[in-house]
């Protein structure tokens, strides 16, 4: 592992950042990582979310992966959970679609209807 001094710097910056924004996470992104999801490319989907969050410096989202999805015909599947709103599930995801979801849904608050497979 790299030097811990780097981590301390990140921590200080993040603490400042969070104080300013006074915010927890606005969105929770859950990538379905069951066997069929993995076989269909869910890892690349996860990777693209992380890349986008890092490069766009999005601080108010949490990303997790779970093996508990059961929609094999529409994998890779992604849930976007926002407090007080319905959960939106996107299906047949890939890298390009993730980029659009990040820019339109996460950044601008407009769900991408083309990719939605369920809402509840």
């Amino acid at each position: 592992m790299k030097t811990l001094a780097d981590l301390r710097k990140i921590r200080e910056k993040a603490q400042q950042d969070m104080k300013l924004r006074n915010a927890g996470s606005r969105f929770k992104i859950v990538v379905g990582m069951g066997t069929s999801g993995i076989a269909m490319g869910a890892r690349e989907v996860m990777k693209t979310f992380l890349d986008e969050i890092a490069t766009r410096q999005i601080v108010d989202v949490v990303v997790s992966q779970t093996g508990e999805k059961g929609l094999s015909s529409m994998e890779p599947v992604v849930d976007i959970i926002e407090e007080g709103k319905e959960t939106i599930t996107y299906g047949n995801m890939n890298s390009e679609k993730v980029k659009r979801v990040v820019s339109e849904h996460i950044v601008n608050g407009q769900p991408v209807n083309d990719y939605i497979i369920s809402r509840d």
Binding site: K2, D6, L7, I10, A14, S25, I53, V62
Partner: peptide, 23 residues
Amino acid sequence: VLKEELGDIPLTYPDVIQYIMED
């Protein structure tokens, strides 16, 4: 080790993602 240094900073904080990816 990472989490001990970061305290309550989430692993999905952009700079933390970058750190982990690079390392």
